[in-house]
Computed example of a mutant assay.
Amino acid sequence: MMQKPLILVTNDDGITAPGIRALISVMKEIGDVIVVAPDSAQSGMGHAVTINNTLTLEKVMIDEGLEAEYACSGTPVDCVKIALGQILDRKPDLCVSGVNHGSNSSINVIYSGTMSAALEAGMSGIPAIGFSLLDFSWNADFEHIKPFIMKITREALNKGIPADVVFNVNFPRLSSDEIKGVKVCRQAKATWVETFDKRISPHGKEYYWLKGEFINQDKGEDTDEWALDNGYISLVPVHFDMTSHHSIKSINAWDL
């Protein structure tokens, strides 16, 4: 009998978030599941790691039928690192992160704890996928995207994710009948135009609240933003080698 795939599940919204519970329910149908996720929300942490503080790891029982489930006090990247270094006795066949409450398309991949966890797994040679739904509500409905998660995950396991690549999958906020399919696409060029709202605390101390507007600068029809705006699930193959290879030749011509 063939061994079931071992799947590591994590996220950045916290171990009790509905998104990760939905993801776990799908992964339990595919393989043996180990969950290591933050004990509280860690959105926007990017690839942060804990180096000036201690980490705690608590075994919890939220879902029955799991191999093991742990709540970690650290960041999403900490969760992957401690899973590989302290919990697992063999390398997972797949790491899935999410389902994130909110978009991780375009430039958001840089800030995303969800995607940074997937990237950390990829950097360790583990095939990895980050899943996100364009709905920030804690009560977002994930049921209708479960079949799509199942299909993408099975294809990734059967066909293999290319080496040094991690999948960034975003779901539009649409019903299953409205979703047209999956588009494999590139990351749109976009940015955040940010401001800081200056406020005064009841004790008279100044503090700031970050605000921002997402600006899509890309008019291409081969991007994740276009796909999501037009009823498709976007799948962007993300490469964690950040070298600008096409620039090397021209920079070598400089007088250095």
Score class of each variant (00 low, 15 high):
202 P>V: 00
139 N>G: 15
189 K>P: 07
111 Y>C: 07
230 N>E: 01
246 H>N: 15
67 E>W: 08
36 V>I: 11
208 Y>R: 15
26 V>H: 03
212 G>P: 01
156 A>V: 00
182 V>Q: 07
60 V>P: 04
56 T>A: 09
132 S>W: 01
197 D>R: 13
145 I>M: 05
23 L>V: 03
176 S>P: 07
141 D>N: 14
230 N>S: 06
89 D>T: 12
147 P>K: 03
44 G>P: 10
121 A>H: 02
178 E>P: 04
73 S>A: 09
77 V>D: 03
39 D>C: 12
142 F>Y: 03
107 I>M: 11
87 I>T: 01
175 S>E: 11
33 V>G: 01
158 N>F: 11
55 L>Q: 02
234 S>F: 05
29 E>N: 13
157 L>E: 03
239 H>C: 13
57 L>N: 02
137 S>M: 14
8 L>S: 01
184 V>N: 10
91 K>Q: 11
253 A>N: 13
166 V>D: 08
13 D>N: 15
225 E>T: 11
27 M>G: 05
74 G>E: 06
168 N>D: 11
142 F>S: 02
214 F>S: 01
244 S>K: 13
22 A>N: 05
30 I>F: 05
78 D>T: 01
147 P>Y: 04
216 N>M: 07
118 A>D: 00
233 I>N: 06
62 I>L: 14
29 E>W: 04
30 I>G: 01
171 F>M: 04
101 H>C: 11
118 A>G: 07
182 V>R: 03
226 W>T: 00
140 A>S: 09
104 N>F: 09
203 H>E: 14
116 S>W: 07
8 L>A: 05
53 N>P: 09
175 S>Y: 06
193 V>D: 15
64 E>N: 14
178 E>A: 11
12 D>G: 05
187 Q>I: 09
180 K>N: 09
207 Y>F: 15
84 L>V: 09
97 S>Q: 04
223 T>K: 02
206 E>C: 10
131 F>Y: 10
228 L>P: 02
33 V>L: 06
165 V>T: 15
216 N>D: 10
204 G>E: 03
114 T>N: 09
139 N>I: 07
169 V>F: 03
61 M>N: 15
228 L>A: 05
178 E>Y: 00
4 K>F: 02
